[in-house]
Amino acid sequence: MSGHVGRRAGRRPRGARTAPVRSALAVGVVASLLAACAALPAPPPPVPTSVVPSTAPAPTTTEAGSQLSPDGFDAAQRMAVRIRNIGCGALSTGSGFAIDEHTLVTNRHVVADSAQLELSTYDGRDVAAEAASSAALADLAVVRTVDALPSAPVLADADPAIGDAVTVVGYPLGRRLTVTDGRIMGAVTDPLNANLGEVLVTDAPVEPGSSGSAALDSSGRVIGVVYAKNATGMSFVVPVSTLRTLLADAAAFAPAPTCG
């Protein structure tokens, strides 16, 4: 796995939040990016037409094992996108989600050093990528698509509070669309780039390939973007306040680096 962390001075995200998680969540624990890497570009299994929930424990469950409402669950699977980054001699996989008909959000390290990006949706449809741009401040990227994406979620107006429910929707290991549930455990200085400021911490389980997954509240609104985890199983999320700030700044994104 590989990823590059920007060094641009950051601003602290705005939003509802209580006291930060203590440094025990990050000190002495190396956070790892969540792109799934492979030596050969063998395609993963086809995308199924149904969502397979994780076996991780969930605080509350509804249809299909998620704490999302039925409407939120349906919207979540429609907006999730699987990403295959075919580089020069290597393959990595990640996740993303639509924010409009021709734009998806993912992590910077998911799209970096690519020769070609392959995108597919929950119903097995391939979507052609047009261009990828990455942010210098946070581990975020946007990908423009030639083909229309099925659906886009609503971005939450504010960051979640500690204790709020969270559902992560993505493609761990580049395979099946999966949902995992948990809670917002707090906020901590970004363990990979202190200049970003605070990021959210959740106990919702993630795996390699989950990079770029949307973190949703119980109504299916995006409250952040998953980008890393630590050795204790805690996941790190770029908060929606940071995502909104960067999306509103035309200078925040530049063409993503390719492998040549």
Rank of each mutant, 00 (worst) to 15 (best):
G3I: 11
V5Y: 11
R7C: 08
R7I: 08
R8A: 09
R12P: 12
P13Y: 13
G15E: 07
R17G: 05
T18H: 14
S23R: 15
A24W: 06
L25N: 03
V27K: 12
V27S: 13
G28N: 06
V29I: 11
V30A: 12
S32I: 07
L33H: 08
A35I: 05
C37T: 13
A38Y: 12
A38Q: 09
P44I: 04
V47R: 12
P48S: 11
P48R: 11
P48H: 08
P53Q: 07
A56Y: 06
E63D: 11
E63T: 15
E63H: 09
S66H: 11
Q67P: 10
L68N: 01
L68K: 01
S69G: 13
G72N: 11
D74H: 05
D74P: 03
A75K: 15
A76Q: 05
R78G: 05
R82L: 08
R84T: 09
N85L: 06
N85E: 09
N85Y: 08
G87W: 10
L91Y: 12
L91K: 13
L91T: 10
S92G: 12
S92N: 05
S95I: 01
I99E: 11
D100S: 14
E101L: 07
H102T: 12
V105M: 14
T106H: 07
N107Q: 04
R108C: 08
A115M: 11
Q116K: 15
S120N: 10
D123H: 03
G124W: 04
R125C: 06
R125W: 06
D126K: 14
E130Q: 13
A131H: 11
A132K: 04
S133I: 02
S134Q: 11
S134L: 09
A135K: 01
L140R: 03
A141F: 03
V142F: 05
V143T: 07
R144T: 14
A148G: 13
P150R: 02
P150V: 03
S151E: 14
V154P: 04
A156I: 06
D157H: 03
D157A: 15
A158Q: 13
D159Y: 07
D159G: 15
I162W: 02
D164I: 04
T167M: 00
T167I: 07
V168S: 00
P172H: 02
L173M: 13
G174D: 08
G174L: 04
R176T: 14
V179A: 01
D181Y: 01
D181A: 13
I184M: 05
I184P: 03
M185R: 12
M185G: 04
V188M: 00
N193E: 12
N195W: 01
E198L: 14
T202D: 00
A204H: 02
A204N: 02
P205Q: 08
V206Q: 02
G209M: 00
S211Q: 00
S211P: 00
G212K: 05
A214E: 02
A214N: 06
R221W: 01
I223S: 06
G224K: 07
G224Q: 08
A228N: 03
N230C: 05
T232C: 11
M234Q: 12
V237D: 09
S241P: 08
L243R: 04
T245N: 13
L246D: 00
A250Q: 13
A252G: 02
A252T: 00
A254I: 00
P255D: 05
P255I: 02
T258W: 02
G260L: 03
